[in-house]
């Protein structure tokens, strides 16, 4: 009995944090979403469903987010996996540390500054100038969905690389020997052993990147030139510019619901892949 009390005591700070930092804001947003825009903007109490009926007005933003978040996640995965594989399996000890640091280094500066650097790289005097100088024609990169995608991959790559790296690094190399011993050529060993055993890392990385991308607004604002509008941008706009907090809350609630649904579906799917295992690091 005493032990249980003590446990409860230890959980108190975490519980308090959970309630004030997670539950409370969600409740506030939910309440606001049924309200109305105040006279000078902001929120004025009411109970109406108008905000939800008005959601289709942000259809484009949802459409952009729901396309570019999965596409961005996939692009991150396709680039991160070989990189993580190289780091965990191929790189020598000496290089591994250096390369890992290089992967993290961009995280040391703010995403804002890093994205601004991309404005110049993708801008008229950057890559397009190079391509045009090579006689390959004029292209426009900056302020396009492609630029946003580039920024996304750049910004979120480490979040994808690290979980995959860890799962590959933990992978028992003897399993690959066992696979070869049993007659599997290397590429098939990769598909039959390495890939399935790195799925927890892949699942974690995809989840991290996808969830964060669903709320992204900085990269589309900077590299999309305000023309590639995410739900995150719609939220910034509704809370900071048009100051329609009630509608903004409804959009936020819709985003949370969409995320809950996709994440739940995703977790169901990945746990089916994992065959109900909770521990893949078995010796």
């Amino acid at each position: 009995m005493q032990a249980r009390h003590r446990t409860a005591l230890f959980l108190l700070p975490a519980g308090a944090w959970f309630v004030t930092m997670l539950v409370l804001p969600l409740v506030v947003v939910l309440v606001f979403s049924f309200g109305e825009r105040g006279e000078a903007g902001g929120y004025s109490p009411a109970f109406v469903l108008d905000n939800y009926f008005n959601l289709p007005a942000r259809w484009t933003a949802f459409q952009n987010t729901l396309t570019l978040a999965p596409v961005g996640t996939l692009a991150c995965l396709l680039i991160a996996y070989p990189l993580a594989y190289f780091l965990a399996v191929r790189a020598s000890e000496k290089w591994r540390t250096l390369l890992l640091v290089l992967v993290i280094v961009p995280f040391w500066t703010s995403i804002l500054i890093r994205s601004y650097a991309w404005i110049f790289i993708l801008g008229g005097q950057g890559i397009p100038a190079l391509i045009s100088a090579m006689g390959l024609g004029d292209i426009k990169l900056i302020n396009t969905p492609f630029a946003v995608l580039t920024g996304i991959v750049y910004g979120y790559l480490p979040l994808m690389v690290f979980p995959i790296y860890v799962s590959l690094e933990r992978l028992d190399k003897r399993l690959l020997e066992a696979s070869a011993d049993l007659g599997s050529p290397p590429w098939r060993s990769f598909l039959q052993v390495t890939l399935p055993l790195s799925m927890p890392g892949v699942a974690t990385g995809c989840m991290l990147v996808f969830i964060l991308l669903m709320g992204e607004f900085l990269i589309p604002a900077i590299l999309g030139g305000g023309k590639v509008f995410f739900v995150g941008n719609a939220l910034v706009d509704l809370f900071l510019q048009s100051r329609n907090w009630a509608f903004g809350s409804a959009v936020a609630v819709a985003l949370v619901v969409i995320m809950l649904v996709t994440v739940t579906a995703y977790m169901r799917l990945t746990s089916r892949w994992a065959g109900g295992r909770d521990d893949l690091s078995l010796m």
Partner: peptide, 17 residues
């Protein structure tokens, strides 16, 4: 113009289009 909801929503529609 600062508080008019129609101008605010027009701008938001323009940006999110």
């Amino acid at each position: 113009t600062l508080t008019d909801p129609h101008r605010a929503e027009l701008m938001a529609r323009f940006k999110s289009a």
